[in-house]
């Protein structure tokens, strides 16, 4: 199933601490307004393709200190009522994978609220192939098994464009969970 997903700027007002919510209070527009999402459940597991426009890709920090790399995340609710915008809540986790343009291996991610994201190695067999053509990033995730997605049939996405200063809570996100079907 292919979804045209309108993205919104993750609300900086939710960000933990006092700096981000004030310094970026006017960052209301998404740096990536739309993404295309295709989700297929097959014999070999979940295949998830995410595409978005990116005219100025950043694939490496290049030993600079003021660059941020492009990235994307796919997450599923670990509980039926896990909230997306706050990255889950205590006892209601969200989980998934984080692709970064400067590394081949995926991160596994899990969170139970803003500021609680834990990165780890992605589950065995999870992978992502990324390529950039015609001004678009296309990242194809493969998860041989993903019990949270099997159970909830919902997915959310986040996209970071490094050239636009995206990092952490400065990101473009789906406005809620997206029903993916199977």
């Amino acid at each position: 199933m292919v979804h045209k997903v309108s993205l919104i700027a993750a609300p900086t007002g939710l960000s933990p601490g006092g700096y981000v919510k004030k310094a970026f209070a006017d960052r209301n527009a998404p740096q990536t307004p739309v993404a295309e999402l295709e989700v297929v459940k097959g014999l070999t597991g979940w295949r998830i393709r995410l595409e978005w426009d990116c005219s100025d890709p950043v694939t490496s920090l290049a030993d600079d200190v003021d660059r941020f790399v492009d990235a994307a995340a796919i997450l599923a609710p670990g509980a039926p009522d896990a909230p997306w915008m706050s990255m889950g809540a205590p006892g209601k986790p969200v989980e998934g994978a984080l692709w970064r343009a400067d590394r081949e291996a995926l991160f596994g991610v899990r969170a139970e609220g803003l500021g609680t994201v834990e990165r780890s190695d992605a589950p065995a067999g999870w992978s992502a192939m990324a390529d950039r053509q015609a001004g678009k990033w296309r990242v194809s995730f493969h998860a041989p098994s993903w019990s949270a997605l099997d159970a909830q049939q919902q997915l959310a996405v986040a996209v970071w464009q490094g050239a636009k200063g995206d990092r952490g809570g400065l990101k473009s996100v789906s406005s809620g969970w997206i029903a993916v079907g199977s």
């Binding site: 933990p16 601490g17 006092g18 700096y19 981000v20 500021g115 994201v117 952490g168 809570g169």
Partner: peptide, 10 residues
């Protein structure tokens, strides 16, 4: 500390 206040990761 401004740095502490700024870190969303605690």
């Amino acid at each position: 500390p401004a740095c502490l206040d700024a870190c969303p990761r605690h």
